[in-house]
Amino acid sequence: MPRQLVIPGEMIASEPVRLDNTYVENGKTFAKVLGFYESEKRQVIPLEGIWQPRIGDIVVGIVVNSRNAVYEIDLSHFTRSILIGSKFDREAYKPGDVIEAEVKDIEDRRTLILWRPRVLFGGTILEVKPTKVPRIIGKANTMIEQISKFTKCNISVGNNGIIWLKGANVPLATEAIRKIESEAHLSGLTEKIKQMLEEQTQTTSK
């Protein structure tokens, strides 16, 4: 797929086109973010930047407030998100709990409604660039499942760039995720990561 690095202010089309991450000025379309322009798909994919929430996104956050089964969850990226608990389960979560949930609704750019929560016990948190999350998950979860398998870790990846990890080899899982983050633009990455995981787990088991 032909694609090209574009910088803010670079002209994408000499006519007005409605595309994400672009703007129109004097009848022409310009990129407004550092990204890759894919001319066939006509899209600009940002390479950096904060999380832009969408309905259906999986997020990992931390409970910061609870009142009458309404919980405020910190998702970082200056979003306030609200999780409404069940009436029958009044104090299901307490401040400090790490939660995985799904974005149900977007009130405004900063206020999200979450549902389908699940508590993640123990473990640790890793912050990654939200733009790299699709690559960390991989096509049909292939990438993350392979990391999980080799490192014997439970991993939950939030579209908001918060990753929760727990298990036998968290340092190796972290290293693999950091490698994907820094090389997300390269192809053949799934194979490369597999190779790295294989080598590392062999040396440590000896």
């Binding site: 694609r3 390479l47 699709p134 096509k139 990455l189 799934t190």
Partner: peptide
């Protein structure tokens, strides 16, 4: 900026 993202190849795998 290009140098940071250089080595880009066809197919982004996303």
């Amino acid at each position: 900026l290009q140098r940071v993202y250089e080595g880009r190849e066809n197919g982004n795998g996303v």
